Simulated scan of single mutants.
Amino acid sequence: MTLPEPTPTSNSGAARQWTAGEKHLITGAAALAPSVHNTQPWVLEFHDEHISLYERLDRALPHHDPVGRDRLISCGAAVENAVSAMRILGWLPAVRLRHDPAHPDEVARITVTGRAEPSDVERHRHRAISARHSHRGPFAGRAMENDLRRELLGAHTVDGVGLRALADPEEVAALARLVSHSALVLRADHAYQRELTAWTAPVREPMPGAGVSSATRRVSTLPWAGLVRRTTAIPDIGFLADRLSREFLVLVETPDDGRHDHVRAGMAAEQVWLAAVDAGLAGSLLTQPFQLPEVRAGLVEKLALSGFPQLLLRFGYL
């Protein structure tokens, strides 16, 4: 899916009526956000001066995502893309995360606060939305420049989210052990495998919301790539650690582990991923291992984290 070119609008006034073109651009950007098993577990509602994003509980994955953490991370990425589209349209959006018992499925409310021309960075990030995709294989051997690594670590603007690059050999080895453990557990989990099969589309490039591609069945996907099937080959830990050491790995953590923390983690991850795409990198987002309590506890212990690990981003060149 390619985003349409935005229609120029004036720089004054407040939004009262969303045009069909504005709605199309914003919903199209949200639809291109990464989501767990490509379930697209959200829906947008347009109001006079704000947009509400609701999580879709009918897209729940009880075996992969029993507490809905991945669903909220996905919603956070969709919020970020919607905000990006609003900025391209010349609106100044303000995001307020919601947890109203009267509307428990409302995740975020994006309010229009004024008008302003988008910056060059915002234009670049918006163009990257259409180019972003999940690369589940290994990367090329080209090393990433330190300046680019630092740039990506500073690419997000979401309060309450921390980014940590994993480069120390002991940290990478610990991650390899935990990823390998989670892969073994998930490969043997029949309920999880049935759920993954149910969300596997019989096409190479599924539409947004239609599940993951059946092409992954025929690819020998190693367990860091985000999909573990019954046929996934799980290498020895030394081999896995060696492969991980060649990638730029970014751990996303939050000080707490509530709904808002999960949404913020998704927003920050999407900002960093779009910055990486704009810099010519490929990447993917890994949450599967974080569903196992022992993996999250192991990361906290081995990496001496002060917060809660939510997801892992991996980047490299093709």
Rank of each mutant, 00 (worst) to 15 (best):
Thr7Asp: 07
Asn11Val: 07
Asn11Met: 13
Ser12Asp: 12
Ser12Ala: 14
Ser12Cys: 08
Gln17Ala: 13
Thr19Val: 10
Ala20Gln: 13
Glu22Trp: 02
Thr27His: 03
Gly28Thr: 10
Ala29Leu: 08
Pro34Gln: 10
Ser35Asn: 07
Thr39Tyr: 02
Trp42Asp: 01
His47Trp: 11
Leu53Asn: 03
Tyr54Asp: 13
Asp58Leu: 13
Arg59Ala: 14
Leu61Asn: 07
Pro62Lys: 10
His64Asn: 12
Asp65Val: 10
Val67Ser: 11
Gly68Met: 05
Arg69Gly: 06
Cys75Thr: 09
Ala77Pro: 06
Val79Thr: 12
Asn81Gln: 08
Ala82Arg: 00
Val83Glu: 05
Ala85Ser: 10
Met86Leu: 15
Arg87His: 04
Leu89Met: 13
Ala94Trp: 08
Arg98Trp: 08
Asp100Thr: 14
Ala102Tyr: 08
Ala102Ser: 14
Val107Met: 07
Val112Pro: 00
Arg115Lys: 13
Ala116Arg: 12
Asp120Gln: 12
Val121Asp: 11
Val121Leu: 13
His126Gly: 01
Arg127Asp: 11
Ala131Cys: 09
Phe139Ala: 06
Ala140Gln: 12
Gly141Ile: 10
Gly141Met: 10
Arg142Trp: 06
Met144Lys: 07
Met144Asp: 01
Leu153Met: 14
Leu153Val: 03
Gly154Trp: 08
Thr157Pro: 01
Val158Lys: 04
Val158Leu: 07
Gly160Phe: 12
Gly162Ile: 01
Gly162Ala: 15
Leu163Phe: 08
Pro169Gln: 09
Glu170Met: 09
Glu171Gly: 04
Val172Trp: 00
Ala173Trp: 00
Ala174Ile: 02
Ala174Phe: 01
Leu175His: 04
Arg177Trp: 00
Leu184Tyr: 12
Arg187His: 08
Tyr192Cys: 03
Thr197Ala: 14
Ser214Asp: 09
Ala215Asp: 12
Thr216Ala: 07
Val219Met: 15
Ser220Val: 06
Leu222Tyr: 08
Pro223Leu: 03
Gly226Thr: 05
Leu227Thr: 09
Val228Arg: 00
Thr231Ser: 13
Thr231Val: 09
Thr232Ile: 10
Ile234Thr: 09
Ile234Asp: 01
Pro235Cys: 14
Pro235Asp: 09
Asp236Trp: 10
Ala241Tyr: 02
Ala241Trp: 00
Leu249Ile: 14
Leu251Ser: 02
Thr254Met: 06
Asp256Gly: 11
Arg259Gly: 05
Asp261Trp: 02
His262Asn: 14
Arg264Ala: 14
Ala265Asp: 04
Met267Asp: 03
Met267Asn: 01
Ala268Glu: 03
Gln271Asn: 12
Gln271Trp: 00
Val272Leu: 08
Val277Arg: 11
Leu286Asp: 09
Thr287Phe: 03
Pro289Met: 06
Pro289Val: 02
Leu303Arg: 06
Leu305Ser: 05
Gln310Ile: 10
Tyr317Ala: 04
Leu318Asn: 10
